[in-house]
Amino acid sequence: MLNKIFLLALLSVVSLSAVSADAPRPEVAESVKAWTGNEGVRVWTLRYGKRADNKALVQITHADHDWDQKIQLMDVENKGDRRDYSVNVDGKKFVVLNLNNANSGELTLPGEGVSRPISYSQLLSDEGNAQYLLTDYLKQEGKLPQ
């Protein structure tokens, strides 16, 4: 009898694990875009959701800042020859990235008085993996087990 109860409990856990593993993943672009800046700062961007949603995952690394390594979901606003990536900080829209069509832009982090120039890096972009970045974001948000 105890073996049957244990077997039923084990089957329930396996079934729940299969359901969570089969949950649909959000749509993302096929490739990550990477940008580099002063003192080795790196910015990784990935379209999140449908193009019309104008959302992106953004991770900033190698920055001496509270946001270092954190992946954030940002709004993307197309402004002709540039794209602005923003989040809400203290209830207000804060533009973190301005990226222009000339493969350059600026990174501005909360609490810093100056913007950092950044430029596109094909080499780093080729190293990026869209599905890994998405998985890391989903884990960070508690939508996947660690």
Rank of each mutant, 00 (worst) to 15 (best):
D68V: 02
Y48F: 15
S31R: 06
V28C: 07
L57D: 06
A34D: 12
L7I: 03
L2W: 08
L10R: 04
K79L: 12
S119G: 08
D126L: 07
Q122K: 14
I5M: 12
R82D: 00
L73T: 06
K139F: 01
H62P: 03
K92F: 02
Y132K: 12
N78I: 02
L57H: 11
R116L: 10
L46C: 14
D84P: 00
S121M: 09
Y137N: 01
T135Q: 12
A63Y: 01
L16I: 01
L7F: 05
P117A: 09
E39L: 12
A56D: 10
P24D: 06
K4R: 15
G80W: 02
E112S: 07
Q140P: 02
N98D: 10
L57C: 10
F6C: 03
H62D: 14
I71M: 04
K33M: 13
D126I: 00
P24Y: 02
R25L: 15
K50R: 08
V95S: 05
D68P: 00
D81R: 06
S115A: 14
N103C: 11
Q59R: 13
R82T: 09
V32G: 04
K70T: 08
H65S: 08
V41F: 08
S104I: 09
A34Q: 13
L138C: 03
V114G: 05
R51N: 13
P24I: 05
V41G: 06
A23G: 01
K93E: 11
L109V: 09
H65I: 12
L8A: 10
A56L: 10
L16R: 00
G37N: 02
G49H: 06
E77S: 08
Y120H: 15
H65F: 07
G113T: 08
L123I: 13
D22R: 15
A29K: 02
F6L: 07
P117Y: 06
G128I: 13
A63K: 00
N38Y: 07
Y120E: 14
I60P: 07
P24K: 08
L2P: 03
T108C: 06
L57W: 06
R25W: 15
Q140Y: 02
I118G: 04
Q140F: 02
N38L: 14
K55Y: 06
M74I: 01
L8F: 03
G113E: 08
W35C: 10
D53Y: 03
E77D: 07
L107A: 09
T135H: 12
G105V: 04
G40P: 00
A63E: 13
S20E: 10
L57N: 10
F6N: 04
Q59W: 00
E77V: 09
N129H: 11
Y132T: 14
L8V: 06
L2S: 14
L123T: 14
K92N: 11
K93P: 03
P117I: 10
W44M: 13
Q140A: 05
S86W: 01
L138S: 04
W67V: 15
W67I: 15
Q69V: 10
G80R: 05
D75T: 11
R116A: 04
K143W: 11
D84Y: 01
V28F: 07
G37T: 05
G37D: 02
